[in-house]
Nucleic acid binder design. Structure first.
Lengths: 151, 151
DNA sequence: GCAAAAAAAGATAAAAAACTCTTTTTATTT
DNA sequence: AAATAAAAAGAGTTTTTTATCTTTTTTTGC
């Protein structure tokens, strides 16, 4: 054990969620944010974040424009997307479907020993990521009481 | 995204939990279980499982005896250990302490945007893994309604 | 004491995830 | 048209996790 697991989401996914919130925040008035700003604003490695943004952009979770004054921004529908949408885009839908003990065959009819206990937790987790939209974080961050990076 | 994340626990940890439940189940009457049986009974790669069992044994979550008729088994106190104990032994206590967005500085006073929503989920998750002891799974598995492996 | 059985330990390999660097494409401004 | 700015794409490296293979140590039964 060299790690210290946690890992509800992959690192890429953590970065993606933070980036989405950051871009939403910064692009309120049609402004575009560059990859450098996004990386700085979320404590993420720049080139790695670039890859993630490309991915999110390809999947239309965020808008991008090349060239001078280009960058990333969000339209109305992007602001409406939930954390769950981001998670699904980056980590897939394992959070919906996979057994907490990794059993492929685990199901209601063929449950692992913790299936039903975990079911409740999963339900709440899914509710949480589905109900929180990216746009809603704007007001939260505006209060200055929430943070996207250390220090 | 080649993965399909999920990953509440690492693979090692999934195997460890299953192994603990399996050994508890099989060693009810002072019997010892060998690594081959454990691997088979949990759908885990044998040598990898061996490593994990060594780890659990070193940390006294399970007992082991070498030589002919040796193997793994559990004493009373082992049966009393919770899933949380196994998780902490293998994955560390990140599940208790780490921010879901990976922010080192995230805390009650310096919360990330999802801190308080996640707090509730985390509380339930911790409750679940702390209240479920390994020994308690015996009766569950005895009913034949729960499974530790596919197929 | 010797052979066999089993876990422990050591060392290596393969796969996946995280991260970096370089080149290309697209758009803008002068 | 040329220079520049920015994202996109491609190709690589490093680190971590997962998995395998080999040797050593311990215990038991003969």
């Amino acid at each position: 054990m060299l790690r210290n697991y946690n890992k509800m989401f992959s690192k890429s996914c953590e970065y993606a969620i933070k980036a989405m919130i950051f871009v939403a925040q910064k692009s309120k008035d049609e402004l575009r944010v560059g990859i450098k700003d996004i990386a700085k604003g979320t404590d993420a490695p720049e080139h790695f974040m670039a890859k993630i943004m490309q991915d999110l952009s390809r999947k239309k979770l965020v808008q991008s424009i090349k060239g001078p004054n280009g960058g990333f921004y969000m339209d109305k529908s992007n602001l409406n997307c939930s954390i769950a949408d981001v998670v699904k885009a980056i980590d897939g839908d394992g959070i919906y479907s996979e057994c907490v003990l990794g059993l492929k065959a685990c199901s209601e009819k063929n449950p692992c020993p913790v299936h039903f206990e975990y079911k409740e937790i999963k339900k709440n987790l899914i509710k949480m990521i589905e109900l929180n939209t990216i746009g809603e974080f704007n007001s939260k961050l505006d209060t200055g009481k929430y943070f996207l990076k250390n220090g």
